[in-house]
Amino acid sequence: MKKKTVIITLICALICLTATIIIAYSGLPEVKGADKFNDIGKGKSNAAHNLLNAAENEETVIGTVMGTEITKSYFNFKYDSYKTSPLNYENPKEEAWNAIKREVWEKRFAKEKGIYPSEKEIDEYVSYVRKEYESTQEGTILIKSFCEGMNMTEDEYWRFNRKYEAPLAVTHGKVIEYLEKNKMSMPEAGSIESNITDLEYYNSL
């Protein structure tokens, strides 16, 4: 009799536990693309952390663009961004190198034309994007999922974004605006002067 009571109690407890788990999980809203955001974060997490930890004096150079030295840790971060992107780039290594060439050209051009963004402009851009993400449940879940993939807290990610990504975005926007206004066009990546000095390393990737 006692054994029967114990079994019934255990079954009831198991049912209650299962029901609790189901209710808890069904309470979490499903957001389309959240898993991909997590994958994107995971894809560039290691390279991002290496980039953050790379001490300037220990940095090794992979090549130069318009005379500017490009470190391996920076190239690796770019390469991982392209390589693991769900956009499935055909040649992510070349795309990453071309992206760096465009960045250097845009930075040089913006400085020459006096349109390089101020610290305030970059801060405003980051706080705008962050606010927009945090303004909806969808955005909140997406950025949380991405940061988990990056193995960073949200604050850490926005600081990373402020340092490595946002300045490029704002510069690009200002350069494009300037080019359009003055009926000019950006040079093809192939025509921007660059030199991969550590070809062995580049080819090994």
Binding site: F37, I40, K78, S81, Y82, S85, L87, Y89, E95, A99, E103, V129, E132, Y133, G139, I143, F146, Y157, N161, E165, A166, L168, A169, H172
Partner: peptide, 9 residues
């Protein structure tokens, strides 16, 4: 998610 500029909206 922009390949160069990260989280965007």
């Amino acid at each position: 998610q922009h390949s160069d500029y990260g989280a965007s909206v």
